[in-house]
């Protein structure tokens, strides 16, 4: 917009200074606007409708649901939620998910930044090859490695343990992490490093005092991605935890939730309550860190 103004100051350009020239037509009312609102609101309703159904359904008795599956609670009961919240099972599942996600995230961030630093800032023979090895990992999805990985974890005595989920989780998050962090670290100006070197700082010291603080936004991005991937992960816990000896109370949420739903399949109200409680942490995390998550996801894709 600024260029238009600069090229032709004065007269007609002032009239189009709105960000959207279609927001207002000559006759003063844009008839396409109600239509746009209708479509957008419809899409929103479809997006959150099922979520609301599950949350509201948790306030119904199973008999009420069976009699009138599409209706509102009649009467409203809190028993389902109370029952789920007072069992150690839900809290145990939640605890397991938190432990797995936090440990995986910490591991990814620490190992990722350590590996990305030399790859971005050092010059040495084989650097390009090393980078290619890591970035090739983008083509190796967990699905392909899942079966041998399970067998490998059995050999290592990690089958049925949290470590058996955490370490592969870190490994599979590393390629994305490094591919995001390396250009990020490289973009930090060379002059800073030279200035630090003149002041007598070693490369390691430079890493700690200057690189780490400056790369915080990148670290948060990869951290959020790793956290979300671990929190939502199902295949790895299915193969590593559900076939092991850990009690169901200590399974992570996605696994605990599916187990609960098969075990109590007749008690629809309870399953709805458990499902909506399992949604809450993800929704809360999203509301809390919306900008980071959205920025991280779109930024990661755009490179």
């Amino acid at each position: 917009m600024s260029t238009i103004e600069r090229n032709a100051p004065g007269d007609s350009t002032v009239a189009i200074r709105t960000a959207n020239p279609y927001a207002k037509r000559k006759d003063g009312f844009d008839w396409s606007q109600p239509f746009v609102y209708f479509i957008v609101l419809l899409v929103c309703a479809v997006a959150i409708g099922p979520v609301l159904y599950v949350i509201i359904g948790g306030f119904r008795t199973t008999g009420d649901i069976n009699a009138n599956p599409g209706g509102f609670p009649n009467p409203w009961v809190f028993d389902n939620y109370a029952a789920v919240l007072t069992t150690p099972r839900f809290w145990g599942n939640l605890f397991a998910s938190v432990v797995l996600a936090v440990a995986t995230t910490a591991g990814v961030v620490v190992l990722g930044i350590m590996a990305a630093y030399p790859l971005a800032r050092y010059t040495f023979r084989g650097r390009q090859g090393l980078y290619t090895v890591f970035s090739a990992g983008l083509m190796f999805p967990l699905t392909v490695a899942a079966l041998p990985l399970t067998l490998l974890l059995r050999e290592l005595g990690m089958h049925g343990t949290y470590l058996g989920v955490i370490i592969p989780g870190i490994a599979f998050a590393l390629p994305t992490t490094i591919v995001i962090l390396v250009p990020f670290l490289r973009a930090i100006p060379q002059e800073l490093e030279e200035a630090a070197a003149i002041d007598g700082a070693s490369r390691i010291r430079f890493f700690w005092r200057i690189m780490l603080p400056l790369s915080m936004p990148g670290l948060i991005t990869v951290g959020v991605l790793a956290f979300v991937a671990s929190w939502n992960g199902y295949l790895l816990p299915l193969l590593v935890i559900s076939t092991g000896s850990l009690p169901q109370e200590l399974w992570p949420l996605p696994l605990g939730l599916t187990q609960f739903s098969t075990q109590y399949s007749q008690n629809t109200g309870a399953v709805l309550a458990y499902t909506s409680l399992a949604m809450i942490p993800a929704l809360a995390f999203f509301l809390f860190a919306e900008k980071r998550i959205v920025g991280g996801l779109t930024g990661a894709v755009k490179g």
């Binding site: 929103c44 979520v51 199902y234 599916t258 993800a282």
Partner: peptide
């Protein structure tokens, strides 16, 4: 709107799948 439209993506595939499984039986919502 942007926030609401993004909600399904935030949920774990398992949670979202289970929600639909509860919505879609022959006599479901």
């Amino acid at each position: 709107y942007r926030l609401l439209i993004f909600v399904p993506y935030v949920l774990a595939e398992v949670t979202a799948g289970l929600a639909w499984k509860l919505l879609l039986p022959p006599t479901g919502g």
